[in-house]
Design a protein around this nucleic acid. Structure first.
Lengths: 402, 402
DNA sequence: TTCATTCGTCATGCTTACGAACAAATGGGT
DNA sequence: ACCCATTTGTTCGTAAGCATGACGAATGAA
């Protein structure tokens, strides 16, 4: 009878119960398995309320009993934990050369990860994404219907029409209804995110307990990009163009025609710019990786090339810290993630800024983007399941009357 | 009996009732006076819940009856409105030459504004602030105990020790326990804010309904500064240094010793930099205002000076839009607020950035800072009185487990 | 074996909110 | 003048959610 009663109540799922459920799930997600009495102490809710909430959560399948807690003084407690298999979240990174996927369960544990070589044809992306999804679900023995949500990280910006703009490394991709096709292929709720933003979130997530509220991630590879986290939230900007730093007036004349086309900063410290610099100094290389190899071998042109790149990147760090004052700046991407470069950037910093600033190399490397995509999926899954977004936190300012 | 019952209930002021009170106050703040039945329809709460909430609010003095609503079909309704005299919020702008004050009532209406000439001695600030407060309260016939909160906007940054750092225009101010003295003088809750941040908030508030979520305010005067609003909230940065753009590598060699001391951008488009530029071009002027006067008179050195300043300011706009992508950029300050300058900045923009960006002059002028300070006070007063900040909106990410 | 401690349930009461019914007030139509 | 639809706002009964305190159960320590 008690059970039936609770079931009836929760058809409408009123605000107060939502808040209680949310508190309990938050504690379980952050602290792991505990007893009901312990949850009662931590959340401040009464034992009675906790028991009701747990009843609901177990019925819905989000939480399960997981043995007993004994050993201390007093009665043995029933331990509850999140049923990690209750829901899964997918992160995909659709890069120009590699497709990466990470599957996490509801507790935030990575249960599968895999990568595929891109087959070069942009049109194959939806099919390859579907394949990757299936591989990951199979590897984790996760039933497809438990996949709640996927986040797809791509270069460029997903337009409202579902087309991918500003992604020159994925030729022909702008013609497709990529969003629609991916939604169909993945057969779940799909979100899209810029790859640099996702990488920023990935690095932030990976830093875990030490994560700072304000965080900047700078990617240097074929292009340059910036991802910003403010209070743990991605800063996307009014037209989703925050962090599009290719046109920053650094490293070249911003009024030159080429700067207006390709961007002064990107022309200067993007892969092409670095190669050109190396060539001007008398070196010859097909890839930036080769330049780093020469650097290791003691080649002075390579040394000059990388140091000049670091000098301009230091100005970029100065720019970012001046504007948004992050706690630290993390570099990633094929080029930006090289410790030889980051070390030199850090060396340049005192010459342009008195205030010390933490400049670090990405700790996830090429996996940053896919991890961030998974984090986005996970966060969205949690919030859609357990959050109370309809309860607004702060009042806005009233209209000004004068 | 009913009344007594309600009183008892609200001693603890539980979450659910807080939410109801909040909804009602929000509607009253945004929509003005209405009847209870109308509030019931708008908020979705039942009529008698609204009646109970209104009973509480009238007892507490936040809301009062204000006549009847008749004329339509059906019974005449009792109209309720916020009792604007229930609480007042103060905004102060302590500038180097002028002290400005604005007093707003709880509904967001400006009830008094005044300004005083600073007497030059930094040590007199607390006494002058007290005087200003009293003048404003008297002008509005507001009893002192109804003053809930004040926000003091100052140049530089208020250190945790209550001392004002980085404010060279207020000589000797760094020695005082300014925060403590102001708290004592003003005799209410006092918040502190950087003047540029406050001005950004002021402009944002003044834009009212058309306010955009992402907004950047650039101040050019003796120094240069930037205030950023993201989702209507000020972006302050990890060490409260967001928007300290004086050191941006624009308009001068960032590696020059002077740039490390005074900042490349500030040396270039701060007042001193502009005067030096004018002098290099053969002109002579004591103040930037004179240069603008010559500009109007057709002086070509003045024209060149201002245009070069605009050119560098355009690079600053490019920098800000590249990083945070605001919907528009507003210029203010003694120099930045001049339309002759802003027009030239806007003219330079297409030469460095294809994407159009709204560049505008401040509409509040020198009052932007004090208005922003008042807005901060008002917002804080509303949130402390009626908000439910203990109810968190979004779940954070769980710890990464791999 | 006793006892303090802890876990979890039960019964009870308080607070909040809602819906239905109803009284009161009002304008329009006849 | 009268009726009626409409709207406002109150009263009353009911349901939901949570807290409190009592209580049984389980457990380790003395």
């Amino acid at each position: 009878m008690h059970v039936a009663e609770v079931n009836q109540r929760l058809v409408a799922s009123p605000v107060l119960r939502q808040l209680s459920v949310r508190s309990v799930m938050e504690r379980l997600l952050l602290d792991g398995a505990t007893s009901r009495a312990s949850l009662s102490r931590v959340t401040g809710l009464s034992k009675q309320t906790i028991s009701e909430v747990m009843l609901v959560l177990t019925e819905r399948g989000w939480v399960k009993e997981s043995g007993m807690i004994s050993g201390g003084v007093g009665r043995t407690a029933v331990r509850y934990e999140i049923d990690a298999t209750a829901g899964f979240a997918l992160g995909l990174d659709l890069g120009a050369s590699t497709l990466r996927g990470v599957l996490v369960d509801i507790s935030g544990t990575i249960v599968a990860q895999h990568e595929l070589a891109a087959d070069g044809q942009g049109g194959q992306l939806p099919a390859q994404a579907k394949l990757l999804k299936q591989i990951l679900l199979d590897a984790a023995k996760a039933p497809a219907e438990r996949l709640q949500i996927a986040t797809v990280a791509t270069p460029g910006v997903m337009s409202p029409q579902g087309r991918l703009d500003l992604a020159p490394n994925l030729p022909g991709i702008g013609e497709l209804d990529l969003a629609g096709q991916l939604r169909a292929s993945l057969d779940c709720q799909v979100m899209f995110e810029n790859d640099v933003n996702a990488a920023a979130l990935g690095e932030y997530w990976e830093a875990g307990e030490n994560a700072d509220n304000h965080f900047a991630f700078i990617s240097i590879g074929t292009g340059v990009g910036l991802g910003i986290l403010v209070d743990g939230q991605l800063l996307r900007g009014s037209s989703l163009a925050a962090g599009e730093i290719g046109y920053l007036p650094l490293g070249g004349d911003p009024f030159a025609p080429q700067s207006l086309e390709q961007g002064a900063l990107e022309s200067s410290i993007g892969a092409t710019g670095i190669l050109q610099r190396f060539a001007r100094l008398g070196g010859s290389a097909q890839t930036v990786r080769e330049i780093f190899d020469r650097l290791e071998a003691g080649d002075s042109a390579a040394e000059q090339t990388i140091d000049e790149t670091a000098r301009i990147a230091a100005l970029l760090v100065l720019t970012v810290t001046s504007v948004i004052d992050p706690d630290r700046v993390v570099f990633g991407g094929n080029i930006g993630g090289r410790s030889e470069l980051v070390r030199r950037i850090a060396d340049w910093m005192p010459k342009v800024q008195k205030r010390p600033i933490r400049v670090e190399a990405s700790s996830l490397g090429p996996r940053a983007t896919v991890m961030g995509a998974a984090a986005m999926s996970l966060g969205q899954m949690h919030n859609s399941l357990f959050s109370t977004l309809e309860v607004p936190g702060r009042l806005g300012l009233p209209t000004l009357r004068q």
